[in-house]
């Protein structure tokens, strides 16, 4: 039996190698301008994939919860208060603003395409969206609530009781709360970007400068970290590998320790999840500390501290143009968001 398994593994490996070999071949033909309209393979970036559809009832419930200020202890904030979809799924603030005007220590990451991240939060402390869901609710600087208290509030609401039962059968539980929020968040993908269309063979989808930006993106080494379908979000990297980022910035805080706060390994000090560049055009300011007010500035900082070089203004604008081509269609904003906006608690 073991022999059989080994054979299977061997065959799988052969298939994988063959696939890699095929990819390589496509890469070589890609430089040809006359590329036929077929999806490009072997590129370090991939189009946002199609994901299995979520249960519609769970998604609707998740959307309702996402925009319900009931989730915060003083009922002033919803998830949607900080993760504003039309603004790029974040709050466009340097660091988060929580209940009672409290300022958080770290920049709010976008909720868009977060399903494609291999871990959640800047330090990757949550493996899944479900794991992540409880974090902001119970963070005293954010929503300041407690899950048991929140569950009690939800149970007091007959609409929620009905909707939870319809979506999950066993009603209002912490597990189902997390599952509903995660189900909604998994639908928040920005598909159909010009870059993705180009990857799928639509050669006219990218302008010349954007294409040049992409070539530069690969050749200067950005792509070493920002790769995959999410143009990032699938690895950790230390900030300041080619320069003393924190020394130059000064005023180091615990939040700056990044992944170290999770693993307590020295090698992880100042390491962060490489953020996705998918909607970077919309999510200024940048980095975990929100220190780069513009994309232009962010590109320069990255080149200096991560790639160890200075980029010309032309190169920077090409890269920015390319990064802007990564943003696809923003997900439709659920009607609940409008109600939230009407109550003056952020759209």
């Amino acid at each position: 039996m073991l022999g059989g398994r080994k054979t299977k593994a061997y065959v799988c490996a052969l298939v994988a190698m063959a696939a890699i070999a095929c990819g390589k071949k496509t890469t070589r033909t890609r430089s040809n301008v006359e590329t036929p309209a077929v999806e490009l393979q072997g590129e370090p970036l991939a189009p946002i994939p199609d994901v299995p559809p979520e249960d519609a009832r769970a998604v609707a419930l998740g959307a309702k919860l996402f925009y319900d200020p009931l989730l915060s202890v003083d009922q002033t904030m919803a998830c949607g208060s900080c993760h504003v979809i039309p603004q790029g799924g974040d709050d466009n603030r340097q660091t988060a603003l929580g209940i009672r005007g409290q300022i958080g220590p770290i920049n709010t990451p976008t909720v868009l395409n977060s399903a494609l991240n291999f871990a959640q939060f800047w330090d990757g402390r949550a493996a899944t969206l479900e794991d992540q869901a409880g974090g902001p609710i119970e963070n005293p600087l954010e929503m300041g609530n407690s899950l048991p208290k929140l569950l009690a509030s939800l149970k007091a609401n007959p609409d929620y009781a009905r909707e939870f039962s319809a979506a999950f059968g066993d009603g209002i539980t912490e597990r189902n709360l997390r599952a509903a929020l995660a189900a909604f968040e998994r639908t928040l993908l920005t598909k159909n970007s010009r870059f993705d269309r180009w990857l799928r063979g639509e050669t006219s989808a990218l302008a010349t400068n954007e294409l040049a930006g992409y070539e530069l993106f690969k050749s200067v080494g950005c792509v070493a970290c920002h790769q995959g379908a999410n143009a990032g979000g699938n690895m950790f990297e230390r900030l300041g590998v080619m320069g003393e980022y924190f020394k130059d910035r000064g005023n180091v805080t615990t939040a700056d320790y990044g992944r170290f706060n999770v693993t307590h390994l020295e090698r992880d000090r100042f390491a962060f999840k490489v953020p996705s560049l998918r909607v970077a055009a919309l999510t200024a300011p940048y980095f975990h500390d929100g220190s780069a007010p513009t994309l232009d500035q962010a590109v320069r900082t990255m080149a200096r501290y991560q790639l160890g070089r200075a980029l010309s203004d032309g190169d920077v604008s090409l890269l920015v143009a390319f990064i802007e081509s990564l943003a696809g269609d923003l997900p439709a904003v659920p009607p609940e968001a409008l109600k939230l906006a009407a109550r003056g608690k952020q759209p």
Partner: peptide, 8 residues
């Protein structure tokens, strides 16, 4: 392999 998605 020039991206980590598969590896991840």
């Amino acid at each position: 392999l020039n991206q980590y998605d598969a590896l991840t």
